[in-house]
Amino acid sequence: MLDDRARMEAAKKEKVEQILAEFQLQEEDLKKVMRRMQKEMDRGLRLETHEEASVKMLPTYVRSTPEGSEVGDFLSLDLGGTNFRVMLVKVGEGEEGQWSVKTKHQMYSIPEDAMTGTAEMLFDYISECISDFLDKHQMKHKKLPLGFTFSFPVRHEDIDKGILLNWTKGFKASGAEGNNVVGLLRDAIKRRGDFEMDVVAMVNDTVATMISCYYEDHQCEVGMIVGTGCNACYMEEMQNVELVEGDEGRMCVNTEWGAFGDSGELDEFLLEYDRLVDESSANPGQQLYEKLIGGKYMGELVRLVLLRLVDENLLFHGEASEQLRTRGAFETRFVSQVESDTGDRKQIYNILSTLGLRPSTTDCDIVRRACESVSTRAAHMCSAGLAGVINRMRESRSEDVMRITVGVDGSVYKLHPSFKERFHASVRRLTPSCEITFIESEEGSGRGAALVSAVACKKACMLGQ
């Protein structure tokens, strides 16, 4: 009897593995994704193909990295998701002549009506938060230079001027797309009239992360975010950046690689679950690469896999709870928690219980395998993109072996128990001629924006502006 049951459990697990095998990517698959990513990057950089390229390769006008001589107080704003952060950054000489960066910050959550109302409502709310922060720190009387981390696709015309191309991540505030974001912020500050600010720089969160990590390690020339969304930036040779005049030196390019796949480059790798996630998203047909990796989508992918296993009578005796059938019910943090389970399955059992399920031991094991399959594919897909960037940098610099540091931020990278190990191992397999160091950014977005502002202020002083 026991043997029969054991055989049935083994057969069930084997069927589960057959279904989950769809998520496995072979090294040849990853090399294919990497080569296609490089081709799209090239198209994004070139003037004649930029418009139709899915990977936009947006110039950021960040050319210099901090040298350690900029000092002063800077205000930093960070808008990239449902939370908005205001930070005071003091850049100065530390002990023994070292450079020191001290920060104080406060988080504000953005109400739904500000995210989806008008641009005026959104930026009025942001300036209200700045006003509140300055009151708390008794700094209303000071006109501070301000660095703005704005983590949406922007076409820069200068370091302090950028046109919002399109909202992502659930934002829909009308009247912002096609307009200068810094102008919208300046107008809102003017409307309030109770404080003055000098907006000197606007950067993407990947750029802010790279600059913040450069402060720790001067070989950091790539910034990457794996959180709600997924994106990367890197220092490109100016001669390859056709959208900006000049051939000397390097400029940081914001790849906006989340949109890779929007022209069909990933079609052969998309599964039924991916198509369902895409169809029910706020932007169907867009940001397809990001939807395979980002935390906004990972939990939902797992939920759809679990429903398939229920329908195949391989999980929960073929019956799903009402909660499990509800879109968004299986949160991405559950994926991390399930994979963090120590082996007694308590954590998995508790999560499934909150979803109205009474799982068996085998159910718990199957749910864990589903989570591992989805998150491992995410790590491997992400590795193909980064390997594409790094191999490109090595080739354009004609280096036999390139040493490089990548600064990384984002909740999936930082909080998932195995993502970074799987990701690092896969990147290294795909970049055999590179020695890569990964560092995690601390308060990256805010500190990085302030350091970019410090560079901009120093330049302005040198130019006598």
Rank of each mutant, 00 (worst) to 15 (best):
M402G: 07
T65S: 10
V253Y: 00
P145L: 01
K136A: 09
E236W: 00
R85G: 08
L451H: 13
Y61M: 13
K414F: 12
V241E: 01
G385W: 09
L357P: 04
S441C: 06
D409V: 06
S411R: 08
H156M: 14
V55G: 01
K190L: 15
L276I: 14
M402E: 04
E157S: 15
R186M: 09
T376R: 09
R63M: 00
S131E: 07
T255S: 12
R429T: 15
S418R: 12
I366E: 04
V305L: 00
A450P: 12
R422I: 12
L309A: 03
A320L: 14
S396K: 15
T437N: 04
N179Y: 12
F123R: 02
M298R: 08
N83I: 15
S174P: 03
V222E: 00
F260Y: 03
L77H: 00
R191W: 02
D4E: 05
Q138T: 14
M57A: 04
E237P: 09
L415D: 14
D274H: 04
S433D: 06
T65R: 05
S76L: 01
V207A: 06
R403T: 08
F123D: 01
L304T: 04
A11I: 13
V241A: 07
V335G: 02
F152L: 12
A6I: 08
Y61D: 00
G249T: 01
G464M: 15
V367L: 05
S360L: 03
R377L: 00
T60I: 00
L184H: 14
Q138G: 11
S373C: 08
I211N: 01
R192I: 06
G117S: 06
F152T: 12
F74S: 00
E9S: 15
D124Y: 07
D274E: 12
R428A: 13
E237I: 04
G147M: 06
V401Y: 05
D274W: 02
D344C: 10
S445P: 10
K12Q: 15
K90S: 02
G94F: 07
D198W: 00
M107L: 09
A282C: 15
H137Q: 10
M235F: 01
E322F: 13
T82Q: 00
T60R: 00
V310P: 00
L386D: 00
K143N: 01
L271S: 04
L79S: 07
N283Q: 05
R7Y: 13
P111W: 08
T405S: 02
D135N: 14
K90Y: 02
V182C: 14
M238A: 01
V277M: 04
E70W: 04
D409F: 05
L30S: 15
V199R: 11
K420G: 11
G80A: 08
A454R: 12
E96S: 11
I436D: 01
E268A: 08
L304E: 02
G229Q: 15
Q219R: 07
F419L: 05
H105K: 10
E28D: 12
V33D: 00
Q323N: 15
S281F: 04
F423G: 05
N313I: 05
F269E: 06
K172H: 04
F334W: 11
S433L: 12
D344I: 08
R191F: 06
N391H: 06
E290M: 15
I126F: 08
H317Q: 14
Y297F: 13
L304W: 04
M37F: 05
S280K: 08
M107I: 10
E319N: 13
E112A: 08
K346S: 08
S263G: 10
D198K: 01
S280Y: 15
E67N: 14
E435V: 10
I390T: 01
F23T: 13
T149Y: 13
T361P: 10
R368P: 02
P284D: 15
M115A: 13
M87V: 03
Y61T: 05
I436T: 15
F133P: 00
S281C: 11
T206Q: 04
S280T: 13
I110H: 06
K140S: 06
E221L: 08
T326S: 10
N240C: 08
Q286S: 14
E221F: 06
M139E: 08
V406E: 00
F171K: 15
V62E: 00
S411M: 11
M210R: 00
E51F: 12
E339I: 01
G178D: 12
L77E: 01
E265Y: 02
R46A: 14
A173T: 07
S340I: 09
V408R: 00
E268K: 04
V55D: 01
V226M: 06
Q465C: 12
H105Y: 10
V389W: 00
K420P: 11
S69E: 14
I130A: 06
T209S: 03
G446N: 14
C129M: 02
E319F: 15
F123Y: 15
V226L: 05
L45Y: 04
S281H: 15
E331R: 14
Q138S: 10
G193Q: 10
E265L: 07
L415K: 09
V401S: 10
A282T: 15
T228C: 06
K104E: 08
E421F: 12
K459T: 10
C461D: 10
R275Y: 12
G92S: 08
Q24H: 11
L292G: 12
L25R: 04
T437W: 10
S433Q: 05
I404Q: 08
L288R: 14
V427H: 06
G117M: 07
I404D: 00
A6L: 09
E52V: 14
A232D: 00
S398A: 03
S263T: 08
I163T: 10
S131C: 11
A329D: 13
S373G: 09
A188P: 04
S360A: 02
G407S: 10
F419Q: 03
E272W: 07
V16C: 10
A379I: 12
L314H: 14
